[in-house]
Design a protein around this nucleic acid. Structure first.
Length: 473
RNA sequence: GCGCCCAUCGUCUAGCGGUCUAGGACGUCGCCCUUUCACGGCGAAAACAGGGGUUCGAGUCCCCUUGGGCGCGCCA
C-alpha cells in the first residue's frame, strides 16, 4: 500500500448536496490537501431507481461552488458493477460466501420473530451451510457473506477510537442481489480498494457499516483503510436536520447570499477545532486540519453564526468580486426587486462605488442588494414608515433649509456636501443628526443607509437634488 | 426492542488529573465611538446532565442512571 493519502467523497445522487455532505467533502478535501494527497470523487449510483442526472449535477456544482476540487475523473459506481460481481463470485469460490434462497417473506418472518423475542434482527443463516442442490426451483438467489459467527469485529476509528462489535450480533449480509447487482456494502469495499483509498472519512451514520465492511475486507484478505467517522450535523432543535432548518442543498445557501469562504469556515468549525481559533483562511485550515481534533458529539446547525462569518468574509472581500457574486444569483433575486437578471452598466458602476459602505453593513449578499435599493429605486421614492416619520413637518422644514445650500454646490462630492450640511448645522445650532436623518430619508427612503455623504456622492448631484425636491413638493 | 456512539454557557467549542474561582467565538444585554445602521472597542449575564466510585486531588479516569443520536433492507 502506498504512503500517499487518498481520500474520497462518495455521495449517492439521490438529492442535492446537503450541508452534512458538504462538510464531509470539506474534511476529505482538507485531509488530502494537508497530507499532499488526493481526494477522489465517486458517485454511488447503484440505486438506479433513485439516482438522477440532476442530482449528479447538483453535487458537482455544489462542490465546485464551494471550491472543493477533486482529483482525477469522477468514478461512477454503477459502471463498475461487473467488477463487483466478479469479487462476489471470487468470494463464493473461496467458500467465503454462499447462495441464499430465502424469500422476502421468510426474511420478514425472521425479523418479526426476532422483534418478538427481543433479539437483534438478523438473518439466521439458514442457507449458510446448505447445499445449493436443495435450492427451490425458480428462485434466483442472492450471494451472502459467510461472516464469522463468534469473536468480535473491531474498528480503530480515527475519531471514534476503538469500536467493537460482537460477531454474533452481525448477520450474513447480502453482497450480490438476486438480479446480479452489487449491494452498497460490497461496492464500497471493492471501489475503495480498487481506488487505493487510504482514508475513509464519512458521516457517523456509517459507523455500523464499517464493521460489516471490515468483515468483507477480511474475507477478501485486503488491507483495511483508516476510518474516520465524523459526527452528524443536527438541526437547531437537536433533532435530525430537516428542510425547515439546515438540510438544504448548498445551492440554497448560495441563493440566500452566503459566500463560499464563509460556509467553508463555518463548516470546518462544526465538529473540528484548533484551540481558540475561529477564523481560518483556506490555507490556514489546510495547515491546521487533523482528524484527532475532530469531536465525537454531533453539532447543531446555527444560522446566526454562519451569518456572522458571512458578514466577516463579505467585509474582507474584494468589491468587484462581491458584485460578481451577486450577479451570479441575480437571475433569482433580480425580478422580484424590479431588477432584471443582469445589472445595467450604470447601476453596476453605482453599486461598485457604493460597495465599501454597503458591504460593511450586510450579512448576506441578499441583504446587501436590498440595502442598495436606493441606488435602483425610482423617483419619487416610496418611503418606509421610519422614513416617513423623519419627514414630518420638522424634518421637511430642515430639508428646506439645507436644500439651497446643496443646490449651490458646483463640484458635488462627499466632501463638499458634508461641508455644506455641517455649515448649516453650525449656523442654525442644529445637531448634525437632525439634518442628516431627514436627508437620509428623502434620499434613500429609509432611516438607515451607508454614510449620508457617500450616498449623495454616488447618487450624483442631479438625482440627489431631485429626490430632495420630491419631498418638498 | 437489540447494537453502537455521544453528553462543558442558548449555540459552536477549549479543556487531554492539580495551572479551572472553567477560556474563546456566535447570539443576548449594557456602555463607548457615531449623521442612521453597521463595523470597531470595553463590559455583563450564561455551562462541567444526575448519582456512585478510583485518587491526596476529577470537567478531565471507571460504573450506573437519564437524555440525545445513528444503525438494524436484495437503500445508499
Amino acid at each position: 500500500m502506498s504512503d500517499t493519502v487518498v481520500t474520497r467523497f462518495a455521495p449517492s445522487p439521490t438529492g442535492f448536496l446537503h450541508i452534512g455532505g458538504a462538510r464531509t467533502a470539506l474534511f476529505n478535501w482538507l485531509y488530502a490537501r494537508r497530507h499532499g494527497g488526493k481526494m477522489l470523487l465517486r458517485i454511488e449510483d447503484t440505486d438506479r431507481e433513485r439516482s438522477t442526472e440532476a442530482a449528479i449535477k447538483a453535487i458537482l456544482d455544489g462542490l465546485s461552488w464551494l471550491g472543493l476540487t477533486w482529483d482525477g475523473d469522477v468514478v461512477y459506481q454503477y459502471a463498475r458493477a461487473a467488477r463487483h460481481r466478479e469479487v462476489a463470485e471470487q468470494l463464493l469460490r473461496a467458500g467465503k460466501a454462499y447462495y441464499c434462497y430465502a424469500s422476502q417473506q421468510e426474511l420478514e418472518e425472521m425479523r418479526e420473530q426476532a422483534r418478538r423475542e427481543g433479539r437483534p434482527m438478523r438473518y439466521d443463516g439458514r442457507w449458510r451451510d446448505r447445499d445449493p442442490s436443495e435450492a427451490p426451483a425458480g428462485v434466483k438467489p442472492v450471494i451472502r457473506l459467510k461472516a464469522p459467527t463468534d469473536g468480535e469485529t473491531v474498528i480503530e476509528d480515527e475519531v471514534q477510537g476503538r469500536v467493537t462489535w460482537q460477531n454474533k450480533d452481525l448477520d450474513d449480509l447480502v453482497l450480490l442481489r438476486s438480479d446480479g447487482t452489487p449491494t452498497y456494502m460490497l461496492a464500497v469495499v471493492v471501489d475503495d480498494h480498487d481506488m487505493a483509498v487510504t482514508h475513509v472519512i464519512r458521516g457517523d451514520d456509517h459507523l455500523t457499516n464499517a464493521a460489516r465492511q471490515k468483515q468483507i475486507y477480511d474475507a477478501l484478505g485486503w488491507d483495511v483503510p483508516r476510518f474516520a467517522h465524523i459526527p452528524l450535523i443536527h438541526g437547531p432543535d437537536g433533532a435530525k436536520l430537516s428542510k425547515r432548518h439546515g438540510a438544504l442543498g448548498v445551492d440554497a445557501y448560495r441563493s440566500m447570499g452566503y459566500i463560499p469562504a464563509a460556509l467553508r469556515n463555518y463548516l470546518v468549525r462544526l465538529g473540528w477545532s484548533h484551540g481558540d481559533q475561529e477564523i481560518f483562511s483556506t490555507e490556514e485550515m489546510i495547515a491546521a486540519f487533523d482528524l484527532a481534533s475532530v469531536g465525537r458529539s454531533p453539532a447543531r446547525f446555527d444560522f446566526a453564526k454562519l451569518e456572522n462569518l458571512n458578514g466577516h468574509y463579505m467585509r474582507l472581500a474584494d468589491d468587484e468580486d462581491l458584485i460578481r457574486a451577486i450577479e451570479a444569483i441575480l437571475p433569482e433575486l433580480g425580478p422580484s426587486r424590479g431588477l432584471g437578471t443582469t445589472f445595467d452598466p450604470s447601476l453596476r458602476r453605482k453599486l461598485l462605488a457604493a460597495m465599501p459602505g454597503l458591504k460593511e453593513r450586510a450579512k448576506t449578499l441578499v441583504e446587501l442588494l436590498d440595502s442598495a435599493s436606493y441606488l435602483y429605486a425610482r423617483r419619487p421614492l416610496a418611503l418606509d414608515e421610519k422614513a416617513k416619520g423623519l419627514l414630518g413637518d420638522d424634518g421637511r422644514g430642515r430639508l428646506a433649509i439645507v436644500l439651497p445650500r446643496l443646490e449651490a454646490i458646483a463640484d458635488w462630492s462627499a466632501e463638499t456636501t458634508e461641508a455644506a450640511v455641517r455649515g448649516v448645522a453650525e449656523e442654525t445650532g442644529l445637531k448634525l443628526g437632525q439634518l442628516a436623518q431627514p436627508l437620509r430619508a428623502a434620499l434613500t427612503g429609509r432611516a438607515t443607509s451607508p454614510g449620508l455623504f457617500d450616498v449623495m456622492a454616488v447618487l450624483g448631484r442631479d438625482e440627489s437634488l431631485s429626490r430632495l425636491r420630491d419631498q418638498l413638493a
